[in-house]
Amino acid sequence: MNYLLHILTMIGLSIPNILGYNLIFGRGKFLHFGPIATSLFSSYAMFLTLRETGNYLSAFFVGLLASLLLSSFFAWLALRLESDALGILTIAMHLALLSVVLNWSSLTRGALGLPQIPRITGMLSLPVFASVSIVIALLWIFFMVRVHRSWLGRELSALAENRAHAEALGINRARVTLSAFLIGGLGATITNTLYPQYIGLLHPNDYQFSNLIFFILCVVAGGPGSVRGVVISIVLLTSLQELIRFLPLPLGLIGPMRLLFFGLILIIAVYIRRKEIFPMQRSV
């Protein structure tokens, strides 16, 4: 029962961050590889503040502010760079931030991470934590469905399909891009407020670049821009990720096997959905 609740919690926790990323990468077709960087920046800002102040509310707002600041910076880059350059720069930003976290040991404790992250009062037991995660995930799904069906979803699709044609209609690219990245940042903050509380530890290993593969995999396999598809994909792939633990393999092989397995699914999914991920932009 507890294991099932654990899987449900992991699904619930993944949904805000990955659905936020789906809006940017899936719907907006921005080659943005920085969602883990946003999570990393937001988490450390939040839990370092919590360590200093002991106040969850102020820590949450600091984490949110950090997330929105970095998201705005990524949006600014997205408005100025071509897709491939944005991809490279967001990877570089992620690696730079991770390097700061790992090396500024006096502040972040480096590779040891921040232990003993306390849970918010009232969320101590697993059933309560799982329920809260699922309720938040359901609310976020509802919100994201509304966003995708709103002017923002349509304008993002229009810009992704043909920027010039969209701008000729009067669509404000800066407003749309910033809105999408800020919503993605909000999703990252929600996930990263809860996840370190759940495992009781904030560890840089949870923010390695390889974790992005799981995000991309969920979006690509579920159908870029589709809320329903990506939610199904998160449910199936999170469950699969957990079930791989039960394969009769030596412990040291399970991690690499998981990466290999997901990499393979990603290759197949990207091949099948290549036209959706990389649509041809027509010239004016």
């Binding site: 002017w151 349509r154 304008e155 699709s157 229009a158 399909e161 043909n162 044609h165 969209a166 000729a168 209609l169 009067g170 669509i171 404000n172 649509p279 027509r282 010239s283 004016v284």
Partner: peptide, 20 residues
């Protein structure tokens, strides 16, 4: 080169112009 958004419905194509 046809400025309609091919992946959107006709309804959405008009709506997106009005919302802008």
């Amino acid at each position: 080169n046809f400025g309609v958004f091919r992946e959107m419905t006709l309804e959405e194509n008009v709506l997106v112009a009005l919302e802008a």
